[in-house]
Simulated scan of single mutants.
Amino acid sequence: MSLDTLCKELRIGGVHSYIQENYPERPDIEEIFISALEAELEKRKVNRQMRALRQAGFPTMKRFEDLVGENLPEDGKHAVPGLRNLGFISERRNVILIGNAGTGKTHMAISTGVLACEAGYRVLFRTAAGLINEMIEARHENRLTLYLRQFKKIDLLILDELGYVSFDLAAAELLFQLLATRYETMSTIITSNLSFSEWVKVFHDPALTGAILDRITQNAIILNMNGKSYRREKKA
Rank of each mutant, 00 (worst) to 15 (best):
A36I: 10
L37N: 11
L37G: 10
L37R: 02
E38D: 03
E38G: 06
E38P: 07
E38N: 07
A39L: 09
A39I: 11
E40I: 04
L41F: 14
E42P: 11
E42Y: 08
K43N: 11
K43S: 01
R44K: 14
R44E: 12
K45D: 10
K45I: 05
K45T: 11
K45G: 07
V46S: 15
V46A: 06
V46W: 12
N47S: 14
N47C: 14
N47R: 15
N47K: 15
R48T: 00
R48I: 05
R48L: 11
Q49H: 15
Q49W: 15
R51L: 12
R51V: 12
R51H: 14
A52K: 13
L53A: 05
L53R: 03
R54E: 13
R54F: 12
R54K: 13
R54V: 13
Q55A: 14
Q55W: 13
A56Y: 07
A56M: 14
A56T: 09
G57T: 08
G57V: 12
G57I: 14
F58A: 00
P59F: 14
P59V: 04
P59S: 06
P59E: 06
T60A: 09
T60L: 14
T60M: 10
M61F: 12
K62A: 02
K62Q: 06
R63Y: 08
R63W: 12
F64S: 04
E65G: 09
E65K: 15
D66Y: 10
D66L: 06
D66W: 08
D66I: 10
L67C: 08
L67T: 04
L67A: 10
V68R: 07
E70T: 11
E70S: 10
E70Q: 11
E70F: 12
E70I: 02
N71K: 14
N71V: 05
N71W: 13
N71P: 00
P73T: 01
E74W: 08
D75K: 07
D75S: 12
D75C: 09
D75Y: 09
G76L: 04
K77V: 05
K77S: 00
H78N: 09
H78Q: 15
A79E: 00
A79W: 03
V80N: 00
V80C: 01
V80Q: 03
V80S: 01
V80K: 05
P81M: 07
P81W: 07
L83S: 00
L83N: 01
L83K: 11
R84K: 15
R84E: 11
N85T: 11
N85I: 02
N85S: 11
L86Q: 13
L86N: 06
